[in-house]
Design a protein around this nucleic acid. Structure first.
Length: 216
DNA sequence: ATCCAGTCAC
DNA sequence: GTGACTGGAT
């Protein structure tokens, strides 16, 4: 028999919580690379609820990359305007779609570097798109994931993603890791409890989290 | 009033 | 590396 280490128990607690509490969004476990990519771009600095509110309309109007590529900035802008950043993102998304159609046969490249080379797609969106589409164990770190991991393992917030990266590199190779369930659960834990001002009393990780244990 | 967030342009 | 984009949280 072997003992479970701190990474395994973290994964297990996070994922177990997620089974019953994961938010249900149409872009989770979506099998369309185009929809995942565009959605991740729309989610940058934008609340999930706002994206959710326009999601069906957006993809009903633009069901494919080529449909999107034939649109105009103002039409895209009018659909995404409740999200903010609409003018910037409308032209960004349109240019992205046109470029995908013209240079890549309308096919979203499925490796991080090729994705991140596209304008409007940074490291985070590229990595998240690959992982959430294929289940590949890529590093997906946004401020929420970073905050949960920093607090749980070190008890304090750091201004860069370095320590989270190191810890995730230990976690990702674990057997039996459902990486999508794990990341979605982590994101939702961050959203529900591990805000800038946390609600540790309600958090399922409170008895093992360094941040909660050491602040008393 | 100030801070914060992914990304791009600088 | 810094500022800007825009809206939300504090």
């Amino acid at each position: 028999m072997r003992t479970t280490n701190k990474y395994e128990s973290f994964v297990s607690n996070v994922t177990k919580w997620g089974i019953d509490h994961l938010g249900v969004f149409p872009w989770r476990f979506c099998e369309d690379s185009y929809k995942i990519l565009i959605t991740e771009i729309l989610l940058v600095r934008t609340s999930r609820d706002k994206v959710n509110a326009i999601w069906q309309d957006f993809f009903a109007r633009f069901p494919t990359i080529s449909a999107l590529a034939k649109s105009t900035p103002s039409e895209i802008s009018s659909i995404i305007h409740p999200l903010g950043l609409q003018r910037i993102r409308a032209s960004q998304i349109l240019e992205l779609a046109i470029r995908l159609v013209e240079e890549l046969d309308g096919i979203v490249p499925l490796n991080i570097d090729a994705l991140a080379r596209l304008k409007g797609v940074g490291q985070y969106v590229a990595s998240a798109t690959i992982c959430f589409l294929t289940g590949e164990k890529t590093l997906v770190i946004d401020s929420n994931i970073n905050r949960v991991i920093d607090r749980f393992f070190s008890g304090e917030d750091h201004d860069n993603y370095k320590s989270s990266m190191t810890i995730l590199e230990r976690i990702l190779p674990l057997d039996n890791l459902d990486v999508r369930m794990f990341y979605f659960s982590l994101i939702d834990l961050g959203y529900e409890y591990c805000r800038r001002v946390p609600d540790c009393e309600k958090c399922v990780l409170r008895t093992s989290c360094s941040y909660n244990i050491h602040r008393h």
